[in-house]
Simulated assay, not measured.
Amino acid sequence: MISVHADVYFFFFFQRTQISDVKGKFFSPAFTLPQICENFAKAANDPRIAGIYLRISSLGCGWGKVDEIRRHIVDFRKTGKFVVTYLYSFQEKEYYLGCASDELYAPQLAPFGLYGFALSASFYRGILEKMGMEPQWVRFGKYKKAGDQMARKTIAEPHLEVLNKLLDDRYDYWMDVVSSSTGKRRDEVEKFVNEGVYDMDRLKEAGLLTDVLYEDEVHT
Rank of each mutant, 00 (worst) to 15 (best):
Val218Trp: 01
Phe26Thr: 14
Ala110Gly: 04
Glu195Cys: 07
Val66Ala: 01
Asn164Cys: 08
Trp137Met: 12
Tyr95Asp: 03
Lys81Val: 15
Met133His: 08
Leu203Ile: 03
Arg185Asp: 07
Val4Arg: 07
Leu213Tyr: 02
Tyr198Val: 14
Ile69Arg: 02
Arg70Thr: 04
Pro111Ser: 03
Glu103Pro: 06
Asp46Met: 15
Ile19Gln: 03
Val83His: 02
Glu94Phe: 07
Arg125Pro: 05
Lys93Ile: 05
Lys25His: 07
Tyr171Arg: 08
His159Asn: 10
Ile127Pro: 05
Pro135Leu: 08
His159Pro: 05
Leu203Asp: 00
Ala110Met: 08
Glu103Arg: 10
Phe140Leu: 09
Lys145His: 01
Lys204Met: 15
Phe14Leu: 11
Ile52Gln: 02
Arg71Glu: 02
Glu103Leu: 12
Val66Trp: 00
Glu129His: 09
Cys37Ile: 15
Leu128Ala: 11
Cys61Met: 04
Thr79Phe: 04
His219Gly: 02
Asp176Ser: 14
Ile2Ser: 00
Asp102Ile: 15
Thr154Gly: 10
Ala30Arg: 05
Lys204Leu: 14
Phe13Ile: 15
Pro34Ala: 00
Glu68Ser: 07
Gly64Lys: 05
Val4Cys: 06
Ser120Phe: 15
Tyr143Met: 11
Phe123Gln: 11
Val177Ser: 00
Phe11Ser: 10
His159Ser: 14
Met150Asn: 04
Val162Met: 11
Pro158Lys: 14
Thr32Asn: 03
Asp201Asn: 14
Val197Thr: 13
Gly196Pro: 05
Lys78Cys: 09
Cys37Glu: 14
Leu163Gln: 06
Asp187Glu: 15
Asp102Leu: 09
Asp7Arg: 12
Glu205Ala: 14
Ala6Ile: 06
Leu209Asn: 01
Val4Glu: 00
Cys61Thr: 03
Asp46Cys: 15
Arg186Phe: 04
Val8Arg: 04
Ile2Met: 05
Met175Asp: 02
Phe76Ala: 05
Leu54Gly: 02
Ile2Pro: 03
Phe26Lys: 14
Ser179Ile: 15
Asp7His: 10
Glu195Gly: 03
Tyr88Asp: 12
Gly141Ser: 10
Arg170Ala: 09
Gly147Pro: 02
Ile127Thr: 12
Lys81Met: 13
Ser122Lys: 13
Leu54Asp: 00
Val8Ala: 11
Glu205Pro: 05
Ile49Pro: 00
